[in-house]
């Protein structure tokens, strides 16, 4: 087989795989509809306001309920020292007033 045909094959295969990821995403979204609904129910029952992505500090656990001082919880000049604090953006309603 010629090199160019091989490359074409590789290209087509790659594009097919990329297309497959899109289809996979769509089908997984369909399948997840139920469990998303369950999660939403739990959120509404308990009145949750945040994702439990990071549990180490209260201002990253409940990001949207953080107040202006929560990143300085130990001391006014002790800066945010939790690793996860460097990933999350402070809640918009605090950042902008």
């Amino acid at each position: 087989m010629r090199n160019s045909s091989l490359f074409l094959l590789f290209l087509v295969a790659g594009l097919l795989f990329i297309l497959m990821t899109v289809m996979d995403a769509v089908s997984q979204q369909d399948m997840a509809r139920e469990s998303l609904k369950r999660r939403a129910t739990l959120v509404s029952e308990l009145g949750l306001s945040d994702l439990a992505l990071s549990t180490e500090a209260r201002y990253t656990r409940h990001l949207s309920l953080a107040d202006r001082h929560s990143a300085f919880q130990d001391h006014p000049t002790s800066f945010d020292h939790f690793p996860s604090g460097s990933i999350f953006l402070p809640p918009l309603h605090l950042a902008n007033d």
Binding site: T55, S84, I87
Partner: peptide, 29 residues
Amino acid sequence: VFYSSAVLFEPVLKGWATLYPQFRLVPFI
């Protein structure tokens, strides 16, 4: 991201915590 639950990001999000959710994200592209 979608089939290994983004293992490489886990330590960053986890930080010093020991509790970390096991979740498989629903892919949205």
